[in-house]
Nucleic acid binder design. Structure first.
Lengths: 211, 211, 211, 211
DNA sequence: ACTGTCGGGACCGCCCGTTGTT
DNA sequence: AACAACGGGCGGTCCCGACAGT
């Protein structure tokens, strides 16, 4: 009975190897400029083997996308689970997601690659747009909740949706710059300052009049 | 000698046609996925003609980059030239740059394409990084000047540099989202809100109370 | 020992499933354009299973050929067994073979596929040429017998051989057209007319006049 | 001005070389089993060059088809032009078309290849079915004319159409056998006998009663 | 200034067949 | 008896660029 697993085990291993190799390769040269041959070379298997695991290069990319989303989901969901006040949750999300982007850069590059492909390829777009919107909704809900509980300043629903997009913009914009000019700044500190500025602007006014 | 003019004129015209065609094509499918053949077809000339004007596909892209930067430079420089207070200048820049990105999307897509290529291709990076940093420096200087003149709250030099990057992040992040989900929000309003939040955070404290 | 039967039975069943699936697939796309993978998919088994039953794609085709020939042999042999006069036997053969070609077209297409492969592939040619010639010989013998018995007009041996080939030509030519333009004619009626014409030409002169 | 033709001349030459090489290759191994690489090798140019002249392998085949039809059309049309009696015209057609099929076999094989592809590939079918039907119509018209002028026995229109198909069947069936078993018979003589039989069957009854 | 022809190479995907495991 | 994993190689197509010619 344990032998039953030999095939599946080996297969999963190979699949993972392909996924990893592809993530690296895509990070290095981009999706379009990466050949299946190179992925195979990096993963150490033939193209015949590759096409046994994935029906197409695009399917591989979609699998990579899914994996990446799963990675991103964890810190956000766990921050929500704390049930803390809105500003604290937002800070926890930023803090939790940082490691994903602070690593050598492979994950960061993969993020950009996904975004680019989503813009061009309808299949990727469909797969990426849904979670993207879902995250925006969750951020917006969080901001609205913060307004309701008094930890953030009062905003109506459409405004909350816009601020969620502003938060997302800051995050993605920082990533973009990090990729272009990694040594050009202490991006961790920039992120700190940026989100600080935003949250300060969103924070509830201390009390009645001027501070 | 009049002949020379005619020739040069015709040549420039063709060159422009190529540039325009390439911008469209790159916006549609991206740099890597766009063939020189397609650019030629759109521009209405043969490949031989193309290679008479540009030594390579990459050189064409570099020319496109330069053209794009010139387009961007105008509103920023003209905002600086007003000599107004820092917050006003910043707002003027945002306002002035908006039309570049509000058009059907060709220029926006081109912006992203440049950024992507700059990340991967050293030649493009070299050409893009310098102006990128220059803009950041100008923003930082503006913020520092605002602090000095009292229109913005006091910040030291490194902090000004970081805030410049935050502004850039917001701008680029908004673009990225606009490309992914054009109908998903009123991006003009989101930008308004976002920069409002940021500038409010950067603004000089009203008066009395120390922070 | 009963176990052996079960195994063998199951094996034969699978073999038949492969044969049927292959016949369909070859009829649809032709031998060269049909992948082993597709045959396996249609037969509902893996490639490993396939290569357990057949050493190669070609061997499968040869098996299919044999099966097809067996199908064809029945009506011809049974017509011969009647011992009727030559014209009656020939008509019985035509009538008996018709259902093979009147079906949806799978068998017809398979016939063509065999012929084509026989032209190109020496192994198939060897397997197909022998029965082909044998049938020609039997037809020729029948014609000669008809001449001898007076039911057909007098022909020498080489002429009988040629007329046998003419009969075969008509049959195969009708098939070819049926495949190309199935709705273009009532092919049953065309066959009727064609063989009628031929047999009339071969028939013994009514009586008196020398030829 | 004569220089204007250098490009076109060279191009036509290459195109012809490709066409010839492809005809040979298809005759040898069939359309499906012939790679573009091999055609290029035979024609002495690279694949890049090939795809400059033809957009696809299928387009090349279609061009070959057209060329082949033009070849076939000549003897038939010229036989019609004689305005002779129906039996004479039919014989002239058979005689005129013979050289096409008596050559080494390349043209014969090409004929079969076209027929096969027409069965499977809708584009080829469309291109082949029209001329096929046109020839049938012309044969039928000839038979009807023969009946009207008394050189052939009386037949109604549908019967003439069927007899046209019978003639076509004999011709194609002879070809098929010639390809399978070139040395198996004197196919020229077989054709002579076959068409003789058919035309004799179609011929007008000498007069009143038995001959 | 611009055209058309062509080369060499890479692209993704599929091919047939083998192997090791159950 | 059957399966999943995999190899090595070829399929058609398209790539960027070169170059002779006008």
């Amino acid at each position: 009975m344990p032998d039953t697993h030999v095939h599946a085990q080996r297969s999963d291993q190979t699949r993972t190897r392909i996924l990893d190799a592809a993530a690296e390769a895509f990070a290095d040269h981009g999706y379009a400029a990466t050949g299946v041959d190179e992925i195979c070379r990096r993963a150490g298997l033939s193209k015949g083997g590759f096409y046994h695991h994935f029906p197409s290069k695009q399917a591989l990319f979609l699998a990579l996308l899914e994996q990446w989303l799963a990675l991103l989901d964890r810190p956000i969901t766990s921050a929500e689970a704390t049930g803390a006040a809105a500003p604290q949750q937002l800070r926890a999300m930023v803090r939790g997601a940082r490691p994903i982007f602070t690593q050598p850069g492979e994950q960061t590059a993969m993020f950009l690659e996904i975004w680019i492909q989503a813009i061009r390829d309808p299949a990727v777009r469909a797969a990426a747009l849904a979670p993207y919107r879902q995250y925006l909704d969750r951020f917006a809900a969080l901001i609205a909740a913060g307004a309701a509980e008094g930890s953030l300043r009062p905003v109506d629903t459409p405004a909350a949706a816009r601020y969620a997009r502003v938060l997302m913009a800051l995050a993605t914009g920082l990533l973009l710059q990090d990729l272009l000019d990694p040594g050009g700044a202490d991006w961790g500190q920039v992120a700190e300052d940026g989100f600080g500025l935003l949250l300060k602007g969103l924070a509830a006014e201390p009390a009645g009049g001027a501070e």
